[in-house]
Amino acid sequence: MNLSIGTRASALSAVILVVFLLAWHVATQGSTAGGPPMDPEYAKLMGLTATTGKSAMPGPLDVGAKLLEHLSRPFYDNGPNDKGIGIQLGWSIARVAAGYGLAALVAIPLGFVIGMSPLLSRAFDPFIQILKPVSPLAWMPLALYTIKDSGASAIFVIFICSVWPMLVNTAFGVASVRKEWLNVARTLEVGPWRRAFTVILPAAAPTILTGMRISIGIAWLVIVAAEMLVGGTGIGYFVWNEWNNLSITNVITAILVIGMVGMLLDRMLAVAARAVTFPE
């Protein structure tokens, strides 16, 4: 066999997928007959599914059917608790875009200034070090109290979690621009603004993009949790709502969709990073 590693990896991925789906299918086929008798309270809570002998856990076929159903009608809107998954994703993406965009607008210029000045770099360092490790959700009560709007609070939480990696990476990228390149600009008597845009920015761009890629990953992790808290709309709220509806099928479908969107966002920034990276 002389297949390339890529082909072999794909084949192996397919095998793992099939084995996983089969195991899942078999595991959810079994009845509850052999199991310990169910607590009647719990049975009441779980409703029909728990008592009909079929596992409450959906199988891969149920989830596949649900996924197809959602994808065929992504944008329906039957009131606050019944919206298409496309609409919910749209809300989440819009919030992430707003919070993340604001963070980029603040973090990149600020990081640039911090990176250029050893003084500012040291002055800002303690604040960054203390605020960076704080879970963004810890800001939520403060945001709700001060902003008094749940949607804007979610955006603020996305902002606060996206800002740190971009800020730190921009400052680092700007501070570590090769001395030689700066000297080229100096010997050519290039002014500070032209130098910032023609030497420092392109030199720091790969590091800045790395920060942006880390940020988008974190933002997409955090939006689900934030929307569970603030409710109303968004994919996080969808997951929470479907849990309350006891629709595990919908929850699993949502997990798959969240994963795929996250991967897509990451790919987009990876492509952007490659576009600004030039080997020497």
């Binding site: 390149w181 030497v199 030039f278």
Partner: peptide, 19 residues
């Protein structure tokens, strides 16, 4: 006083801008 376009430098490690 400082660098000048009148004095061009050829650097040891070429120092080209890779982008």
């Amino acid at each position: 006083a400082g660098p000048s376009l009148d004095r061009a430098v050829i650097f040891q490690g070429h120092a080209l801008l890779p982008w």
